[in-house]
Computed example of a mutant assay.
Amino acid sequence: MKKSLSADIYLRFLQLAETIRGLPTLPALDPLEERLLEQIANAGTRQERLCVRDLMAQRELSSPATIHTRLKSMRQKGWILLADTEDARRKQIELSEAAHAHFEKLSACIVQAAEEH
């Protein structure tokens, strides 16, 4: 069975992205942390403010305690930052510079995969 061009590009992207994951930049994330990172990145793309409480309210992800533990882990690993808001009790979640750099590398992988075909 012949692969389509788009499938071939995607598979090439996966290979390139796997290479990036092997580079010593940021510590690896577990599956829940990856889902949280996607939520944080998507909110940033939409220029929405995302607070710790907002993520903890998403019960479909996990329990609030588990989410809080994972956010703490992600912060220690260097993936996210917590910024103050006008309400001292609320912390806004933002991607770290290292996380932005990681997404830039992944974007370059997409471009490279597409250019190779």
Rank of each mutant, 00 (worst) to 15 (best):
T66L: 15
W79A: 00
S62W: 02
F103E: 10
A43Q: 04
Q92N: 05
H102V: 02
T69P: 02
E104S: 14
A88V: 13
Q58I: 13
E33R: 11
K3A: 14
W79V: 01
C51R: 13
K105I: 00
M1H: 14
R90F: 12
E18Y: 15
R46Q: 09
E33Q: 12
L14D: 05
A65R: 08
A101L: 05
R35V: 15
L29Y: 04
K91N: 01
L32C: 05
A65L: 11
L16I: 05
M56T: 07
E38C: 07
E104Q: 09
Q92K: 12
E60Y: 07
C51F: 13
R89Q: 11
R90V: 03
D87P: 00
I40D: 00
H102A: 07
A17L: 03
R59T: 10
Q58M: 15
Q76T: 11
R75D: 04
S96N: 06
Q112D: 07
S62K: 08
L95T: 00
Q47N: 13
A43P: 04
A17K: 11
R75S: 12
P31A: 12
K77A: 14
L81R: 11
I9L: 12
W79C: 02
T69E: 13
L23V: 08
A41S: 11
A83Y: 07
L16P: 03
E34A: 13
A83P: 00
K72H: 10
E116F: 11
A43T: 01
C109V: 01
L26I: 09
R89K: 10
L5M: 15
E60L: 15
W79H: 03
Q39F: 10
I20G: 04
H102Q: 06
H117K: 09
R35W: 15
L81I: 04
E33P: 08
S96E: 04
R75W: 07
P27D: 05
A17Y: 07
H102F: 09
A41V: 05
A101P: 03
L106V: 02
